[in-house]
């Protein structure tokens, strides 16, 4: 286990370096200069106005006249110091702005994943146990629909039905204007629609996955043995099938995070949910590249961490992985 952990952890710095390289060169294509964006707003104000020489001197001081590789290193050095630059629009440090948006996104995503996991696993196990029954056919067919519908279409339909027509749930936002903000019932009430709309696709794909792995487990030798010794079917399923069928599901949570975070750009925009996705969308619309760059870095880092945790969790529950 220790060796596996070490091997897995030693990859992290390489991947992080890759992420920064990719982000930097991606945004190097954009107008503006990632490194200039690191300079505190105001510092440049005295320069530049009719004084080209001064600006040049300043650029030289920050290393901006150097080739792109050097500029990358300058940017990386600042990044390691925790300086992600300043937003073009608000002049606020990017790191602070992002830190403010993260809790809202994590809360929404965790709820979506949790919802999808519970629903998906239950439906998947039921369809596997009742394989080829009418219920199985119906749910498998429904799941195919579930993974095919665009998340924004699901969100709009949910919004139309439950917020516009039935008026059961708030249409958008995180809190009713005028009411206290914070982690309260009002917030949960506002979260029902976005969390469910974001979860539907994953309910369907978890269900398909849980069905396949339960079927696998059902045909395993140890299940035949359990049945042969006369164990009741209920116990066979609860004790032997489920435990083995649900193990692979652990990996799914890590695998679905990129999709969920990508989808949060759409879901958060539709429901005005003030998280990373909406922040990224606003940055995109206003060409606020330093902020956008921060969001991209943060999303990639979150996914990297989630993958790491998933892998370790999986190796922990399934010893075979460690010796691969």
């Amino acid at each position: 286990m220790q060796q596996y952990l070490l091997r897995r952890l030693s990859l992290i710095p390489i991947l992080l370096l890759g992420i920064t390289l990719m982000t930097f060169f991606m945004f190097n294509l954009a107008p503006g200069d990632p490194v200039t964006a690191l300079i505190k707003p105001g510092v440049l104000d005295g320069f530049g106005q009719g004084d080209g020489a001064n600006l040049e001197a300043l650029r030289a001081r920050y290393g901006l006249d150097k080739p792109v590789i050097v500029r990358y290193l300058v940017w990386l050095r600042e990044l390691l110091k925790g300086n992600l630059g300043y937003s073009y629009n608000t002049d606020q440090p990017v790191l602070e702005t992002i830190a403010e948006a993260i809790p809202a996104t994590l809360l929404l995503q965790a709820t979506s994943i949790g919802l999808a996991l519970i629903m998906g696993v239950i439906l998947g196990v039921i369809t596997a146990i009742k394989q080829y029954s009418r219920l199985d056919h119906f749910l498998t067919f429904l799941a195919l629909f579930g993974i095919s519908l665009p998340n924004f279409f699901i969100a709009l339909i949910a919004m139309y039905v439950f917020a516009v027509k039935l008026n059961w749930l708030p249409i958008a936002g995180m809190w009713t204007p005028g009411r206290p903000i914070g982690f309260n019932l009002d917030l949960l009430h506002h979260m029902v629609l976005p969390a469910t709309a974001g979860a539907i696709i994953y309910v369907a794909s978890y269900m398909r996955y849980a069905r396949a792995s339960t079927l696998d487990a059902l045909s395993a030798d140890f299940v035949v043995t359990a049945r042969a010794k006369g164990l009741r079917e209920r116990l066979v399923v609860m004790r032997h099938v489920l435990r083995n069928a649900l193990l692979p599901i652990v990996t799914l949570m890590g695998l679905s995070l990129p999709g969920l975070l990508g989808g949060s750009f759409i879901i958060e925009t539709i429901f005005s949910w003030n998280g990373l996705g909406l922040l990224g969308y606003r940055a995109l619309m206003s060409r606020d590249y330093p902020l956008l760059m921060g969001v991209a870095l943060m999303v990639a880092t979150l996914i990297l961490l989630a993958n790491l945790i998933t892998d370790i969790a999986y190796a922990f529950v399934d010893p075979r992985v460690r010796y691969e």
């Binding site: 390489i14 990719m22 999709g259 991209a296 996914i303």
Partner: peptide
């Protein structure tokens, strides 16, 4: 490793950002 790095960015976010840049 290159694949791993590209995979840590959600495809949708990558396409969104790059298309808005180019």
């Amino acid at each position: 490793r290159f694949t791993d790095v590209v995979m840590t960015f959600p495809t949708f976010v990558l396409v969104l950002i790059l298309v808005s840049i180019v």
